[in-house]
Design a protein around this nucleic acid. Structure first.
Lengths: 133, 133
DNA sequence: GTATTTGCAAATGATTTGCAGTGCT
DNA sequence: AGCACTGCAAATCATTTGCAAATAC
């Protein structure tokens, strides 16, 4: 994972083992909670503190390397920044998936109806995933 | 506002002054935060406690009389339940508006792409409102 | 070598809970 | 009258902050 070191440096962040672990886990899991990050990283780095995790997540969000995914009635999960997409949440197993759909027309319609100038959208779709359905 | 009394009773809730005030303020403001509710209701009922407010909001959400509107990086606002709709958030003045757009096609496309069975959607559109634009 | 980062402990902020007293129906 | 509701104080939970020691570069 030498490239993750680069990714951090490109964002002007020092490549600490904790940060590298965060990126690896996000690559592996797609969406992951603070608690899961803590649990996994702690296995390798016994000294890890939650405060460090929170600080790093916030820093990484600040440089747009990570995005927060808010889950209704639950703690947020985090993902590496990729091209804009929406999220699917399975109401049974709580799994999250990405879905890439074009919202251009929706945005246009909204702008027409509301006279807002839309710059960003957040769409969460809840339902049953293929396995649970 | 005699009918608000009825609304509460129809949901099997006792019509206390605190609850009536909550409903009135939601009718007046559309979307309102706990803190604003507290501030306004406290003017009339000096003894109001935040705990009561939270309890009531949660009870009212439980009987589907109220819905929570999560605002990124901010405290939630609350609104009376009405037919499904999306929310517009002005990034400048923080005002929230409703917009009624049909997401049927989006949902269909998502289901096709993901094989999820979608039951509920939450769409938040951020941008500039007509006044701020 | 120096600025950044880490980890601890303590602080903060929002929300929830337990319980005794009050009030709606 | 009886059960639900209120308000207080204390508890909880997630997240943030301050600071001294450690580390990346």
């Amino acid at each position: 994972m030498y490239q993750n070191h680069q990714i951090l440096r490109e964002h002007n962040l020092k490549a600490t083992p904790q940060r590298l672990a965060i990126i690896e886990l996000m690559q592996k899991h797609g969406h992951i909670s603070i608690d899961n990050l803590y649990q996994y990283i702690k296995e390798k780095f016994h000294s890890l503190s939650l405060a460090t995790l929170y600080k790093n997540i916030n820093i990484m969000i600040g440089v747009d390397l990570v995005k927060e995914v808010k889950i209704p009635n639950n703690k947020s999960k985090y993902e590496l920044t990729k091209k804009p997409h929406s999220h699917l949440l399975c109401t049974k197993c709580n799994e999250i998936s990405d879905v890439f759909i074009d919202l251009k027309n929706i945005i246009k319609e909204c702008e027409k109806n509301s006279h807002y100038k839309i710059s960003e959208t957040t769409l969460l779709l809840k339902g049953l995933c293929p396995k649970c359905n």
